[in-house]
């Protein structure tokens, strides 16, 4: 029996795309000086550091980790709260299908975009310059960061709602506030709560590193010990915060699954 051979179509455009993507990847690796062979050769150094961190970690230090860790969680809670609270009304303005006024929704979206592109770390170091070193600066940074994140997700859900309910209310002569209250809010609230929880998970992780620029929480303790080269204490901080983050993620994603 002859083999059946299906000839592949020659596709110039596809090849050009593949070629340029390969060029982009190789080019950036070369530009950044990324050399896999060198990295594999250097691996023993990394093993030594990991050994000093985790074999064994300085467990006696763990009592001192608890209070900055609680501060981190507090920062995440408060930052998420303010961020979510401000995100909801702004998301309504940014959604194109409620006010139906592009002169409002387009600029609001543009501003939200700018908010989302500034990294939380940069915001935090800016606020440290204004509010001083401590968790307050971190909370302000987290609030703004969360606001950008949640408002984007929420306005996208508002745009994806079932419009039948809105039309039903409109045909009864309901005004905008009533449409918002009885047709839009009930549909997006579960998703909004889920996004808020998601924001909280992200914030716990972000709050844990914000201290690196002086914005409070466990990151500050981490940075101290790293600067003093107390690697066994750094190991304890990493292990404990890792476990806490894992637990928070697990609980929160469980609740989120039930919500939506």
């Amino acid at each position: 029996m002859d083999k059946i051979v299906v000839p592949k179509p020659r596709n110039l455009r596809r090849n050009a795309v593949v070629l340029s993507v390969v060029f982009l990847i190789v080019g950036s690796a070369v530009f950044a000086g990324f050399n896999p062979i060198e990295i594999i050769e250097n691996f023993s150094k990394g093993k030594r550091l990991l050994g000093r961190m985790f074999l064994p970690p300085d467990w006696s230090y763990s009592a001192k980790v608890i209070s900055p860790l609680l501060e981190t969680i507090r920062m995440a809670i408060v930052g998420t709260f303010w961020g979510a609270l401000t995100a909801l009304p702004v998301a309504v303005l940014a959604a194109g299908n409620f006010l139906k006024n592009p002169w409002i929704s387009k600029p609001v979206r543009l501003i939200l975009n700018v908010f989302r592109t500034i990294p939380a770390m940069v915001l935090a170091s800016l606020f440290v310059a204004v509010y001083g070193i401590g968790p307050f600066s971190g909370v302000v940074a987290l609030s703004i960061f969360t606001f950008g994140l949640i408002s984007k997700l929420t306005y996208e859900s508002i745009e994806a709602i079932d419009f039948g309910q809105v039309e039903a209310l409109m045909s009864l002569g309901a005004d905008k506030p009533n449409i918002l209250r009885y047709a839009i809010m009930p549909q997006i609230l579960p998703q909004f709560m889920s996004y808020t929880l998601y924001g909280f998970e992200v914030n716990v992780r972000a709050a844990a590193v914000l201290g690196y620029v002086g914005a409070g929480g466990i990151g500050q303790t981490f940075e101290h010990n790293l600067a003093w080269r107390n690697f066994d204490r750094v190991g304890v901080i990493i292990v404990i915060s890792f476990v806490v983050v894992l637990i928070i993620d697990f609980v929160s994603s469980h609740i989120r699954k039930r919500l939506v």
Binding site: L70, E71, R74, I77, V78, Y131, G132, G134, P135, F136
Partner: peptide, 10 residues
């Protein structure tokens, strides 16, 4: 959470 975040002024 809020009680744990002291506001020390600017």
């Amino acid at each position: 959470g809020m009680l744990g975040i002291p506001y020390k002024g600017i």
